[in-house]
Simulated assay, not measured.
Amino acid sequence: MQPDIEIYLLSCPTERIISWLEQDFSVLDMRKPSDIATKLHLDWNGRDIPVTILEQAAGKRFTSVWFDSEQTPWESDMECAKRAFEALQCEVRCNYQGWQEDGQEDPDLWWRINANGEGPYIWR
């Protein structure tokens, strides 16, 4: 189990991301600490999951969605990314190897899902 989940969405407005989250979660709290950040507390099966949506997280076109909890509906970033792509139909990227205690993963190796399919991707 991962300690958190993070995905990156290409050219996907925050409002659409929130609408997607509302399909599987109840929004307990939402605030906008800045023009590019939205912080939410979501309820999933009685669990409070803090989420940060950060626009322009990787260049101007990518938005990060970070679930700061190990208790999400997904076992991995990749599982979350697949669900996000199904719902939003915008390109999604996530860490290819997931989180590992020893830190031996390649920081440039990502998993990319878009209309052309999915697979490993070197993101620099």
Results as ranks from 00 to 15, higher is better:
Lys39Gln: 14
Gly59Ala: 02
Thr52Ala: 01
Asp102Glu: 05
Arg47Met: 07
Arg31Ser: 12
Val65Phe: 00
Ile36Lys: 11
Ile17Asp: 00
Lys39His: 13
Glu6Tyr: 03
Ile18Thr: 08
Trp111Phe: 13
Arg47Phe: 07
Asp106Val: 03
Gln97Trp: 05
Met30Cys: 15
Asp35Ile: 10
Gln97Val: 08
Ser34Ala: 01
Ser69Lys: 06
Trp110Arg: 04
Glu86Cys: 15
Phe85Leu: 07
Asp4Pro: 08
Glu15Asn: 07
Ile53Val: 06
Ile36Ala: 09
Tyr8His: 14
Val65Cys: 00
Ser76Thr: 14
Ala58Asn: 09
Leu9Lys: 02
Trp74Leu: 08
Ala58Arg: 12
Ala87Cys: 09
Glu22Gly: 13
Glu91His: 01
Pro33Gln: 02
Ile113Thr: 05
Asn45Gly: 15
Tyr8Thr: 12
Phe62Ser: 02
Asn116Cys: 13
Ile36Leu: 10
Ser26Lys: 11
Gln2Ser: 10
Asp48Ile: 14
Arg93Pro: 11
Ile49Tyr: 00
Gln71Phe: 15
Trp123Thr: 13
Arg16Ser: 15
Met78Gln: 13
Tyr96Gln: 02
Cys80Glu: 00
Gln89Pro: 06
Tyr121Glu: 05
Leu28Gln: 05
Ile122Tyr: 04
Pro107Val: 03
Glu55Thr: 12
Leu42Asp: 04
Asp77Ala: 08
Cys94His: 03
Asp29Glu: 08
Thr38Cys: 05
Thr14Arg: 01
Leu88Pro: 15
Trp20Lys: 14
Trp74His: 09
Gly119His: 04
Asn114His: 07
